[in-house]
Design a binder for these strands. Structure first.
Lengths: 129, 129
DNA sequence: TCTATAGTTAGCTTCATGGCTAACCAATTA
DNA sequence: TAATTGGTTAGCCATGAAGCTAACTATAGA
């Protein structure tokens, strides 16, 4: 028991479901009761509540019950955490692209220098793209 | 059949698995063969291949086989698409916060104006936070 | 107090996911 | 040509996710 899912696991798998993504989108615009949230969906309430629960355990959504109505709101932290993951990956990816570009540029220069040394063999041999 | 998963569904559920997230992270640093990718994982190859396949159908990863080795590389588009989703949600969220702040400011000003009109009742009644 | 509303709990079904083994190609290399 | 390497296919199993209905609790309103 207690399989210890990482926060990112939970956030991404919460967002993998279109219903839950729609709930998050709705909550970005402001808090709402379970009933209000459930209204647009053609789904039995207990099924819908499961989605809410998934969102809560993923940390994306917080809720509070007052009287008989439960009000849900977004907790932006989890969302930011996931966004951050993308940004870090992109940074790595872009750094690599930069290195690659530098490498290509270097190759190109060396080629040009080599071509300049022996003008008999023209540069257009075999297409340079 | 053909359940028509949306691209975002597929990308997010692909990224919900720590093994697959690790593969994506690895591929951000540059392309690699299936064997190289599988090496750090204590998992049978066929199981590992399933992860690769999930990543491919989600559009996150591309692969090509030459000889008997299959080389995988990241397709940044799908990653950017998901990142974009976060950014759009955050924009909505932040716009709402701005509106909310404006509203609070307005309330505060009205309160001050009201307090100025009747100086007998002091502002400090019941704490203003 | 009665009734309607808003959620909640329990329990069931079905299908997808993530793992495994065993057996099978198809390129390399000896 | 035989053996090895790198990946693939097929098929099995256990678990979990997503949906449902039925029945229940607790607050709000008439």
């Amino acid at each position: 028991m207690a399989n210890q899912l990482s926060p990112l696991d939970q956030v991404f798998s919460a967002l993998a479901d279109p219903t839950r993504r729609a709930i998050v989108m709705r909550l970005c615009a402001g808090e709402a009761s379970v009933g209000e949230l459930a209204d647009p969906f053609d789904m039995a309430l207990p099924s819908f509540m499961k989605h809410i629960h998934v969102l809560e355990t993923s940390g994306l959504v917080l809720s509070e019950k007052s009287g008989r109505v439960r009000t849900c709101r977004l907790s932006p932290d989890a969302l930011l955490g996931a966004e951050d993951w993308f940004q870090r990956q992109r940074a790595i990816w872009e750094a690599r692209l930069d290195r690659f570009e530098a490498y290509v540029t270097k190759l190109k220069k060396e080629k040009e220098r080599a071509a300049a040394k022996r003008p008999s063999r023209t540069t257009k041999k075999k297409g340079s793209e």
